[in-house]
Design a protein around this nucleic acid. Sequence first.
DNA 1: GCCAACGTTGGC
DNA 2: GCCAACGTTGGC
Length: 136
Amino acid sequence: MNYWLIKSEPFKYSWDHFVEEGQSMWDGVRNYQARNNMMAMKTGDQALFYHSNEGKEVVGIAKVSKEHYPDPTTDDPRWVVVNFVPVAKLPKAISLKQIKQDPTLQDMALVKHSRLSVAPLKAEEFDHIVALAYET
DNA sequence: GCCAACGTTGGC
DNA sequence: GCCAACGTTGGC
């Protein structure tokens, strides 16, 4: 199983909206690195859902419900989408600030390549962030 | 195939 | 709202 981090501007597509819909087609990715990451996703892989710009925090856990297929929102055959379903909302959102201050999370793409919208996560990083969120 | 111009993202 | 970082485009 692999772990990922997916970013969305809450203004465009928030976690709450995601939960409301119960499923999301992750479209609009127009970046090769991000696309390659999406193509590597397998059904059941877990992803942290991050709010960029507004909030700047990890708010929930999502899971891949459908592996990549051609992006129906464009005729351009280069782009793909994947589907996600919500797994759990984190009891406590983990802010970018907190991530940056955590020595074990310094290698995250979120820290190093802040513009990458779909990034791989190590299992340790995923577990660490989830553990932080469930701490009291 | 290089590189300048341009557009976009996202933190601050 | 600004700007740095970075990706993409297009002329040569």
